[in-house]
Design a protein around this nucleic acid. Structure first.
Lengths: 261, 261
DNA sequence: GCCTTTGCGTGCGCCGTCGCACAGATCCAT
DNA sequence: ATGGATCTGTGCGACGGCGCACGCAAAGGC
């Protein structure tokens, strides 16, 4: 599914943002893979073997604790890359990596990614920036999980998915959404019911169609907008990406900061 | 308070892990600061002016949304550094940075940190590793917020604090803990009451003394242990820190991964 | 077309947390 | 020592989410 007529790794925005020279150097090392929904790309605790650059697929980072409780940490699509621990110098990750929405991706071997990291080139620079976006995404999930009602969280989740998909349809079961949000399946049924009655969405067995995106946005918690803005802020102003030192003024310390005696 | 007879920046473990040559290069740029509890080191959204390396202080990253709801994202003490966005190539952060427990820290100007980053030396390498630890901390907070009861979360929080403090006492009000955990103050009163009845802790107006650490650990959710293990895994095996490529085997893809047609 | 599988709808009691209100206790400054 | 500010204890109703159980409906294989 989602098999574009011409497959182009540069549908992935990280690869797209890579200067031409860097890209051509890596191009033939990128392996194209099709990802089926529900597939486990990486089991928690194992060493990472690849870094994935989704083009049409959506991938979820999931953390499950010993008691079986779990939650989605982040959703990664054509906007980013999967395998940040390699970028940060780690080898394995406690997160499980699952295909949330089927599609395609490119992957690069962990070995090559490590080399890229050690050389500190543009791929590494962009990846670090995405790591920051990921942290923001996770941070808002913390607050969101704590304070927001399920139906608002569902709005956020749907919008995030939609942003990474071509059309206005999300193919996913309520059971799956429940696992992602870390709530009961029934809670999703109820929340989705509300959204459907409100005319925002429409669904049938594993397919949700969004009719009123603006309505969803209005109903979603601010977390959605905030995460999106952060991403755009990080990747929109590419101009200032070379070194952000421009803004690193050396002002004196501010409120409540007392110099050591 | 906590004014050690000899102040040594290398009580901070990141600085301590820095090879001697790198440290002496930076040494005179490190500014010693005393941090008073409750002080706001950085307001959400502002550009970061410094990177902090706590030696005895504990610093909290906090995210508050528009509605005033907030939660602690991470707790950083002598084990790490504050200001990861600079390390990742960003300039500002949406997180508020607050002193959770008074003490001292060293700081480095954002300008210098940017330079370190661009040169990609050992400080940058260690900082990235800590960024990974931070992500793990945040990830477990997501699951923890979703699934664990307040008193177990309180155990976790107390243990994390204790690990960054010299004695067995945490100086903090229940009001403060509540803000960190993102729950009501009364919920903390109740949870703390349970722990006190169980003989694990003992408290009086802003001071909690831990009597039975093992008991707390038994009662805490696995999140505590997991985060701690991850940290030790990242920083214990310093030997393998040069390049983790050793483990980057090139095995063939595994389960449910279907090659592109 | 049938039948099995899988996903969805609904009702119920339970419980943890919330929000609010107010009283009591402890600390600290003057 | 005393008063004021701050922190802590407690009670109450409301409610969102959980866990369970069961019935139904829609898809898909043969």
């Amino acid at each position: 599914m989602a098999n574009l007529a011409v497959f182009d790794p540069r549908h992935n925005q990280i690869l797209a943002a890579l200067p031409g020279r860097d890209y051509t150097r890596l191009e033939h090392d990128l392996e194209r893979v099709a990802l089926v929904p529900g597939a486990l790309l990486h089991a928690a605790g194992d060493p990472l073997k690849f870094v994935y650059f989704p083009t049409t697929a959506i991938i979820a980072l999931i953390l499950a604790n010993d008691s079986g409780a779990s939650a989605e940490l982040a959703m990664i699509g054509r906007d980013g890359l999967v395998g940040i621990p390699l970028v940060l110098g780690g080898v394995n990750t406690r997160f499980a990596i699952m295909v949330q929405s089927g599609g395609e991706a490119c992957r690069l071997s962990a070995e090559l990614m490590c080399r890229e990291r050690d050389e500190g080139g543009n791929l590494q620079r962009l990846s670090l920036r995405y790591a920051q976006a990921l942290m923001t995404q996770m941070a808002y999930s913390i607050v969101c999980n704590r304070h927001h009602l399920v139906d608002r969280q569902l709005c956020r989740w749907l919008l995030s998915s939609l942003d990474l998909l071509p059309g206005n349809q999300v193919d996913v079961t309520q059971e799956m959404i429940a696992r992602m949000l870390g709530v009961r399946r029934e809670a999703v049924t109820e929340a989705a019911g509300k959204l459907q009655s409100a005319g925002l969405i429409q669904y049938r067995r594993g397919h949700i169609t969004v009719n009123d995106r603006a309505g969803l946005e209005a109903r979603a918690c601010e977390c959605y907008r905030a995460v999106r803005e952060e991403y755009e802020h990080l990747f929109g102003a590419q101009a200032a990406s070379k070194c952000s030192s421009i803004n690193c003024t050396l002002e004196t310390p501010r409120n409540s900061l007392i110099p050591s005696r």
